[in-house]
Amino acid sequence: MGKLLELTESGLYCPEGDFHIDPWRPVARAIITHAHSDHARIGSRNYLTTPEGAGVLRLRVTGDWVTEQGYAPPQITTLPYGQTRNINGVSVSLHPAGHLLGSAQVRVEHGGEIWAVSGDYKTQVDATCTPFEPVRCHTFITESTFGLPIYRWRPQAEIFADINSWWRANQDQGRTSFLYAYALGKAQRILAGLDPEIGPILVHGSVARLNHAYAEADIALPPSQYADDEAAKSTRGRAIVIAPPSAANTPTYLRKFGPTSHAFASGWMTIRGARRRRAVDRGFVLSDHADWPGLIDAIRATGAENIGVTHGYTAVMVRWLRENGWNAWGLETRFTGEEQEEE
């Protein structure tokens, strides 16, 4: 019998069950861990995800821009966390990954052999998604975006307190606060941590669109306005604007908000050089990926002996795992984790 999962040109594939997990090429049946663009690509015929994740996945893989590229409208089916579906004799279930709304680890079982694929995950709390749950398995495929011991997150409450006081300090100086964060997941997590008492909360268009999907999944976010010209004018010097990193390159848009202060929220902000390269005033260290202790705790909690390591500091993680008694190897996937530079 071959391996339960193997790496093919299209991505992680289960020969026994004839399905892919987060394929980077169009396939017949794709199981999707979460809707970030490096994991959820267009063109497959069937997508399987969690009910919570279906809304954001639909925004990502359906619509005119997909059919215009010659792809048929795909079918999206859902499987609630913890329920099992039999696909060609292979038992498949989805389990919370804590990365963002509806994100899942994929558990695959066949003939007594259990594998789990983490997708992207974090072990820290996040009010906007179901917390990570370890999956007992024989083989665990883990990400390693922040697989170095320099990456150790501080409690999110501290980071939110920092963000809120930065916002307040900017207000005192009549500045609008621009906080850059990835539109899906990070933006909503931050929104949930803002103190709406401080002032108006504005969101960039790409964030607003995704907030809608969060609202449909009953995730409570503080009220926010769409950051158009009018809102810019009426909230100048008081508002915080949550925008994707690309908005930093739109000076004409930024000018409408009067004097501004800029910050970026990302795990990469751990390193001073990364913040200075972005030329932002502040860097908030906030990531939706596991930090070094998080990765190691998560790996331990699976009880797995075999660890496949994908995107990130793969070589470091593999070496550390081997030196500490695991059977570990690297997997060359096309996942990118938290993008270090522009998307």
Partner: peptide, 19 residues
């Protein structure tokens, strides 16, 4: 592992602090 961290950070003072 300390060396790998140092290469990623590029600054000795910061590497020590982060570790």
């Amino acid at each position: 592992l300390v060396e790998e961290s140092y290469h990623a950070v590029g600054d000795i003072a910061e590497t020590l602090t982060l570790l």
